[in-house]
């Protein structure tokens, strides 16, 4: 921030009414909230600006839980103009709070139905799918003599005791998609039973969804439950990882886009959202994600299984969104205290 704007703010603080001196610059600035991985943000903005140099993106990046919390906190005084790259389940939550602007972007119809808000007045649009994966450190597992798991069920094997890390669903979108997928794969009762078993093997729950894989990559833990994108990136950077896609099916969530209701830069926001569903954008998503919203675009991504889409469970987002609060409360009650369960 410049000294000038600080002074301006101070004068507001002093209660002196100042006429806004924000001169309408040639560039429109959009505040965009996102949970997209930090290392990709520059690329996203740059690609967008190739076509729309008149709009400048100011990123607010944090993990899914934090971005969601921030948006909710600012409900009565929203700071964001656009959300680009946040879990659809989170956006559904915001939709229920009436915080999202309904908008059907150009090219909306070309997207596969899985990635669309099917209501009459759609408020969000999907970008890509973000699928669960297990990061398995071959070096550390070798030292400890741990077999490579192939299924979710394998992870409850007592040999893995204290050797698994997963994200806390209360703060991590990845953690939540894991939990909600297990409840859908195994059914509710069996699902909780499964998690009881898994909990016995968990060394700790992390706040962020990428951390378990990064910890696995650095050998801090042999097995980290995370998501495919992060796993592929870590493996690419040279970590001794095997990426496991459990056979029962993979939980997933999608990254999606939406306009925040009440933005005073609606036109620019719409321009941005239009671009986020474009072919070019989808090709860009495909650089990191194997499954994207626009059919026929996806090419295989290094370290991803080719049949990624078929491994994804038939995720019931309506059910997930509707039961989110209860699931999280129950999860917290059962597992969120070491002193209790361990």
């Amino acid at each position: 921030m410049t000294q000038k704007s600080l002074m301006k703010r101070l004068s507001i603080l002093a209660g002196i009414a100042t006429v806004s001196i924000a001169t309408q610059a040639a560039q429109t600035e959009l505040t965009v909230y996102t949970a997209v991985e930090a290392e990709d943000l520059k690329k996203y903005a740059a690609r967008f600006n190739e076509e729309h140099p008149e709009i400048k993106i100011n990123w607010v990046r944090d993990s899914t839980g934090i971005v969601t919390a921030k948006l909710l906190a600012e409900k009565s005084n929203p700071q964001a103009d656009v959300v680009w790259g946040l879990a659809a389940t989170s956006l559904m939550l915001l939709k229920n709070e009436g915080m999202l602007q309904s908008y059907k972007p150009e090219g909306y119809d070309a997207l596969s139905s899985k990635f669309k808000d099917t209501s009459a007045d759609p408020v969000w649009t999907g970008m890509d799918a973000w699928i669960a994966a297990v990061c398995y450190n071959t070096v550390e597992a070798g030292k400890l003599g741990l077999p490579k798991p192939t299924s979710w069920a394998d992870l409850t094997n007592p040999v893995y005791k204290d050797h698994i890390i997963m994200p806390n669903p209360n703060s991590s979108g990845t953690g939540f998609l894991d939990v909600s997928s297990w409840l859908q794969i195994f059914g509710e009762d069996k699902g909780w039973e499964y998690m009881d078993g898994l909990h016995n093997n968990i060394s700790r729950y992390t706040h962020s969804g990428s951390k378990p894989c990064k910890l696995a990559a650095s050998g801090e833990i042999p097995i980290g439950i995370s998501f495919a994108f992060r796993a592929a990136k870590s493996k690419k950077s040279g970590a001794p990882l095997d990426i496991v896609f459990p056979t029962e099916g993979l939980g997933w969530d999608m990254e999606a886009t939406s306009i925040i209701k009440g933005t005073d830069k609606l036109e620019a926001a719409q321009t941005l959202v239009d671009w986020t569903v474009s072919k070019k954008a989808n090709e860009m998503y495909n650089e990191g994600y194997a499954v994207v919203a626009m059919p026929g675009i996806a090419k295989p991504v290094e370290f991803f299984p080719e049949n990624a889409e078929s491994l994804m469970i038939d995720n019931d987002f309506e059910w997930t969104a509707a039961n989110r609060v209860e699931i999280l409360a129950k999860w917290q009650e059962r597992y969120d205290s070491k002193s209790e369960a361990k």
Binding site: A69, N170, R204, D336, S337, K338
Partner: peptide
């Protein structure tokens, strides 16, 4: 802290993780 919860992290979790202000 791992899984060892303390009051201060609870606030953080309540607010950041669960939006429970």
């Amino acid at each position: 802290g791992g899984q060892f919860n303390v009051l201060a992290t609870d606030i953080y979790k309540q607010v950041i993780g669960q939006q429970n202000f």
